[in-house]
Structure formats: structure tokens, C-alpha cells
Amino acid sequence: MLRATILVLIGGGIGAALRELLMLGVANLPGGFPMPIFVANMTATLLLGVFSALTTGGLIGSRGKLLLMTGILGGLSTFSSFVWGTHQLLTNPAEQVSAIVYVVLSMFGGFLLVELGLWLGGRFMRSHIEAAGPREEL
């Protein structure tokens, strides 16, 4: 339990710090589109799909899952800033179009990127198993 907690602590810290770096380094688009949060969430969904497939395939164990998925990707992605950003854009009539584009792109983009990630991860697992050769026959 202590080891698991430390893995989530370190991972979550790294993920959140990466998100802060995006917020410091990437500007919002004209119209208020929150680009840094969008990039953080889309990156996290793609990688979460990949790592999820690798976990299913047995390449990532329970500790790796806690560090990478629960920790780093959970810390990198954020739902509260996504929703609050949408709320803030919606309250300004000049930015309501951005709000709708932001929600739709985040939801559908995240949907497609998870599927893409699962597919890429599954592909990698299959090539990994093939490369492992006859051991799989046992």
C-alpha cells in the first residue's frame, strides 16, 4: 500500500507539473479556446489508450499502471479545468462559439484518440507476441 501510494504521488506530481508547463508555454487561441488544457487532455487520452492495451497485454504490470496511468496521465489530464473553462466561455456571449467548439472537439477528439491509442497498443502487443516467438505456444 505504501509503495503504491508513493507511485501515485510521484506520477500525479509529474503529470500535474507537465500540465502547468503547458499552461505556461502554450497560449489560448483567439476566441478564448483553452489550448493548453486541450493539448494536455488529448495527449493523456491517446497515451491512456496505448497503456491500457499494454496493461491488458501484460506488458505493463500493476505498479507500472499506478505510476503511468493513475499517476502521470491522471495528473496530466483534468476534467475540472475542462468544464470550468467551458463554463467561463459560455458566460461570455463573444466566446460561446469557442465553448461549443471546445466541448465538441474535446469529447469527440478524446473518444477517437482513446480508440486510436487502444488500437496502436494492441498492434504493438501483437508484434511483441510475434517477436517473442514459440514461447507463446507453451
Partner: peptide, 10 residues
């Protein structure tokens, strides 16, 4: 930000 997650949601 660390508490909520967009990744698991998707």
C-alpha cells in the same frame, strides 16, 4: 487538476 481526470472519463 490532479484529483479530476479527463483520461479515465474517455
Amino acid at each position: 487538476g490532479g484529483y479530476t481526470t479527463f483520461g479515465s472519463y474517455q
